[in-house]
Amino acid sequence: MELSPKEIERYDRQISISSFGIEAQLKLKRAAVLVAGVGGLGSAAAIYLAAAGVGRLRLVDHGEVELSNLNRQVLYSVEDVGKPKVSAAAKRLRALNPEIEVEAIGERITESNIHGLLKGVDVVVDGQDNFKTRFIINRACVEESKPFVYGAVYGFEGRLMTIIPGKTPCLRCLIPRDPEEPSKVPTIGSLPGLVGSLEALEAIKLITGVGKPFTNKLLIIDGAETAFYIIDVKRDPKCPVCGGK
C-alpha cells in the first residue's frame, strides 16, 4: 500500500511532524476504527479520524438527528434533522475525505451484535451516552483484545481513559459498581468536542505507535474552571471483566 501524491499533499502537515512521517500515515491508511456512537463525542472523534486519514471508519448508531443534538453534534446540520445519524455522518465524512472508506451501521449496540461489529477493527472509540452499552463494549473489547478509548461528558466536565486489554485497567476496574443511568445528560458542546478530539488522538497514537497512549490514568476535565486533573487507576485483580486476563 502506498500514498498517492494527492494523499501526500492532503496529509502534509502531519507527515511533517518528525516522529510521524510517511510510515505513520501508511499505518493510519491500513487501519480501521469503530466509532461506537456518533453523538457529541463520536462527531468530534470521527471528524478528526477522517481528516487524519484513518483508512476505514465504521460508524454505529441507531439514532436519528434531533434539533437538540445540534449544540454539540458537529457532524450534522439543520437539513439532517429526522435523518438517521449514521447516513448523515457518513455523507459528511466522505465529503471531508473521499480517500477513506466509511461504513454506516444503523444499529443499537448489544451483547449479540458487538462481536460482529468489532471484526476487522483495530481500535474502538467511545461515543456512547450511557454506562450499560459502554460496559458491553468494554467486555467485548477485553475478550477480543481490542484497545478501547473511554470518553464521557457531563455538564462542563469530561473524562478520558485509554484501555489496552490485558495490560491496563478496563472500564470495570475504573467503575466497579453500576452507577445510576442518567435520563438526559446536560452538556455544553465544547466538552464532547474536546473529549472526542482527545479520543481521536488516542486512536491515532495507538495505531501509529507515535507518542504514548493515556493508560492507567483517568483524565478529569473541569471545563467550568479550565482545570485538568489526572488520577492513577490500577488494574483490579478481582475485576469480573479483565481480572487475570
Binding site: Q128, D129, A152, P192
Partner: peptide, 10 residues
C-alpha cells in the same frame, strides 16, 4: 476534598 462521580454523557 474533591468528590468525583463517574459520568456517561456523550
Amino acid at each position: 476534598v474533591a468528590i468525583i462521580p463517574p459520568v456517561a454523557g456523550g
